[in-house]
């Protein structure tokens, strides 16, 4: 039995290691490619260890940009992506916390109707409603603006549902105790509901930041100016070139840069996550 179990353990670790290698190798290759010059990559003899062009590639990508396709320094694209992702994440948290609070704690006519309408939008992701949304955004004059990038993506039901489920687990007695303690609806929200929801907020922030950062279709449609393009679009443009050599080393550098903010968000928020969880368990 003991023999068997060690074998089972080893097998599990072996499979796990293979899995990690399969997943990590492309990422590593991307990083390696971002440290060599274009010629080495294109002639297919790029070694599997980092090269000497790290500083040059990153400097050129961040502050100068590619020669042909995107014409913009990648730092600008990163700022655009960051603003968009933050606006979507924060805007969505703001709207969904408030709407969930209304749906759970207020008794108003057509409350359930309102809830089901919100719920229905789950069936209508951006891709489905893209034409009407584009028309509306264009008519308002939001093309090539941060509002145009972020606002349509803020409106969706996932956050509202998440918070609704969480709010329903808050005991009614807390609301009643607050009432007796003289806290009105806003105070109850600010002093009790919001502090208790911090872990949910953190979770939603992580999900929505990454969702916003990775948006491709929507920014592609509504941004035309180079100065408004996001980093995901930038990568795509760098790779697909009609009549010039792809500057692979810059494209790879951009890809590495594009990965960093989501990773940072996950790592930072994970701490808050764990802290919240530990605090509650004590």
């Amino acid at each position: 039995m003991v023999e068997n179990r060690t074998f089972g353990d080893r097998l599990a670790y072996l499979i796990l290691t293979i899995g990690v290698l399969i997943l990590a190798f492309p990422v590593y290759l991307t990083f390696v490619a971002s440290t060599w010059d274009a010629a080495t990559i294109i002639n297919g003899q790029m070694p599997l260890y980092p090269g000497p062009f790290f500083a040059e590639n990153y400097y050129r990508t961040l502050f100068i940009g590619t020669a042909g396709t995107t014409r913009e320094p990648v730092i600008n694209m990163m700022i655009n992506s960051f603003v968009m992702a933050m606006a979507i994440a924060l805007g969505k948290i703001f709207i969904s916390v408030l709407s969930a609070y209304a749906v759970v704690y207020y008794r108003f006519p057509f409350r359930m109707a309102a809830f089901w309408l919100i719920f229905l939008t789950l069936m209508l992701p951006v891709e489905v409603r893209i034409f009407p949304t584009f028309k509306v955004v264009a008519d308002i004059g939001f093309l090539d603006t941060y509002q145009g990038l972020a606002v349509p993506l803020i409106a969706s039901a996932t956050g509202t549902l998440l918070f609704r489920q969480f709010f329903m687990t808050i005991p009614d007695e807390l609301l009643e105790a607050s009432k007796i303690d003289g806290a009105g609806p806003f105070r109850f929200f600010k002093d009790t509901v919001l502090p208790l929801s911090m872990t949910t907020v953190a979770a939603l922030f992580v999900i929505q930041f990454i969702y916003g950062w990775n948006q491709y279709l929507w920014p592609l449609l509504i941004t035309t100016k180079d100065s408004m393009q996001t980093i995901v679009i930038g990568i795509k443009k760098m790779i697909v070139t009609a009549d010039a050599l792809t500057e692979w080393q810059l494209a790879m550098t951009t890809a590495v840069l594009a990965m960093l903010p989501p990773v940072a968000v996950v790592i930072l928020m994970q701490r808050l996550f764990v802290k919240g969880l530990v605090d509650q368990e004590k």
């Binding site: 807390l174 105790a177 009790t192």
Partner: peptide
């Protein structure tokens, strides 16, 4: 009259303390 203005205090079965 609102509960907070009735000049009462209540002790609940599950205590209803603010956990945070």
């Amino acid at each position: 009259i609102e509960p907070s203005d009735r000049d009462i205090a209540m002790v609940f079965q599950n205590y209803a303390l603010y956990p945070h």
